[in-house]
């Protein structure tokens, strides 16, 4: 057991740092009155983010007549709205590898993550969370499976085994992971969240997104759980696990709906996910 823990920690240590700016951009971008100065300041403090934005606004997609050389420059040229949307797109896919790794199709992985992010935010809004909190709900959904990326990158052989086993038995991936790797993607995701200093509730949501018990303990965890099942049921993308689970009583009680009922309450999910796909494209463009 000590051995497993050590291996997991070593893998987590290898992951790149998660920019704080991503979190701040997600927050700022959900505010209709977001002050331009604040957004510009957040971006400027992060050199990687800055570089990505400059690369993108200087790409052929924008077709600008002259080179944009600084974030101040980009801000004047493009204005708040465009800059905000560019930053939002880049923030979402910022820190994560783009190439396929160890049997994980990153395009499909991102689509699944975005679908869960979008659905988590919609569920949060249905339960009356504020706009500010809704951004946190989105982030929790976006990052819930991040542990799989750590496995795929740094423990690829065992992870491939787990993927194969889950596919063969049509069983939940986290169970196969526990057998092959001694821990689940939720476990290692939580360790990564700790290294990244993500806020407690976010860390908790990553750790418990397969382990809600009867449900009803944490609203955010219940939302991520339900969003995950909805996305799998509707086959938005794929992250190596195709089995969806019915909602436990505590989660059903929270929404006063079962899984099918919830899906009916979210007729615009398709469209919102389609919109979120832009993030994937933007990430690739940089």
């Amino acid at each position: 057991m000590q051995d497993v823990k050590k291996k997991l920690l070593t893998a987590v240590e290898k992951m790149p740092a998660f920019p704080k700016s991503v979190h701040q951009v997600l927050k700022l971008a959900s505010d209709i009155n977001c002050p331009q100065k604040e957004l510009v300041e957040v971006i400027k403090r992060d050199p990687v983010f800055t570089l990505k934005i400059l690369r993108l606004v200087n790409s052929a997609y924008f077709g600008l007549a002259r080179e944009i050389t600084s974030i101040n420059h980009a801000s004047v040229y493009l204005g708040l709205n465009t800059l905000k949307n560019v930053a939002l797109g880049l923030a979402a896919v910022g820190a994560i590898p783009k190439a396929n790794v160890a049997g994980l199709d990153m395009g499909a992985f991102w689509l699944h993550s975005l679908a869960v992010a979008t659905a988590t935010r919609m569920l949060g809004s249905m339960l009356g969370v504020s706009r500010d909190e809704a951004a946190d709900y989105f982030a929790a959904g976006l990052l819930h499976d991040i542990g799989k990326v750590v496995f795929a990158l740094y423990m690829p052989v065992e992870f491939q085994q787990a993927l194969a086993r889950a596919a063969e038995d049509n069983s939940p991936l986290h169970e196969a992971e526990a057998e092959s790797l001694g821990a689940t993607h939720a476990d290692i995701g939580a360790l990564l969240a700790e290294k990244w200093n993500l806020p407690g509730p976010l860390r908790n949501a990553i750790e418990r997104h397969h382990d809600v018990g009867e449900g009803g303990r944490s609203q955010l965890v219940d939302c991520v759980f339900a969003a995950n099942q909805i996305s799998k049921k509707l086959a938005f993308g794929a992250a190596g696990d195709f089995s969806s689970t019915p909602l436990p009583p505590g989660v059903e009680a929270r929404f006063a709906l079962d899984l099918e009922g919830l899906i009916k309450e979210m007729p615009t999910l398709d469209e919102e996910v389609e919109h979120a796909r832009i993030f994937i494209k933007l990430g690739e463009a940089s």
């Binding site: 924008f62 600008l64 708040l80």
Partner: peptide, 24 residues
């Protein structure tokens, strides 16, 4: 169009410049 592009229609030319608005 690209920023600064000039279009020649034969009977007129149309050149452009990026302005300041919450859209391109």
């Amino acid at each position: 169009l690209r920023d600064g592009q000039v279009v020649d229609l034969g009977f007129a030319t149309v050149s452009n410049m990026l302005m300041n608005h919450p859209a391109m």
